[in-house]
Design a protein around this nucleic acid. Structure first.
Length: 140
DNA sequence: GCCAACGTTGGC
DNA sequence: GCCAACGTTGGC
């Protein structure tokens, strides 16, 4: 199983909205970046991801699961763009802020730190467990 | 609100 | 195929 990070502006699509979708999940549409799309094409059912709020919060706020593998993005007729569906698994008891992540030498190589503009990113197993520990949240 | 970083576009 | 111009993102 692989780990990922999904970034969203809470004013556009928030964790609360994601939770409200329940088991049905939600299409992670609107991505118009090849790198981000390619990562989504690699995703498998059951892969886990962090849900990150950009802008005001700048924090990992929850854990999501891939509940549909890559398929055409329904918000465009342009067949270049694919996306996955994700559903909320559990919130972070203590959201892990970008500041906190940057304080952690072991997390200095996270894509979130290195390339803050990429909206869908891979996360290593080590990074996954460390961020979960910082957030006092079950990584499983 | 500013600006650096980055990706995309289009002219050559 | 290069690169300048432009638009967008997101941290500060």
């Amino acid at each position: 199983m692989a780990f990922w990070l999904f970034k969203s502006e809470p004013s556009t699509w928030s964790w609360d909205q994601q939770v409200a979708r329940g088991e049905a999940g939600e299409e992670w549409d609107g991505v118009r970046n090849y790198q981000a799309r390619n990562f989504m094409r690699e995703m498998k059912l059951g892969d886990r991801g962090f849900f990150y709020h950009s802008q005001k919060d700048k924090a990992v706020v929850g854990i999501v699961e891939v509940c549909a593998e890559s398929h055409p993005d329904s918000t465009t007729d342009d067949d270049r763009w694919d996306c996955v569906d994700i559903k909320a698994v559990r919130p972070f008891e203590h959201p892990v802020t970008l500041d906190r992540i940057k304080q952690e030498p072991a997390l200095a190589d996270m894509v979130l730190v290195r390339n803050s503009r990429l909206s869908v990113q891979p996360v290593t197993g080590d990074e996954w467990h460390q961020v979960c520990a910082l957030g006092k949240t079950d990584p499983g």
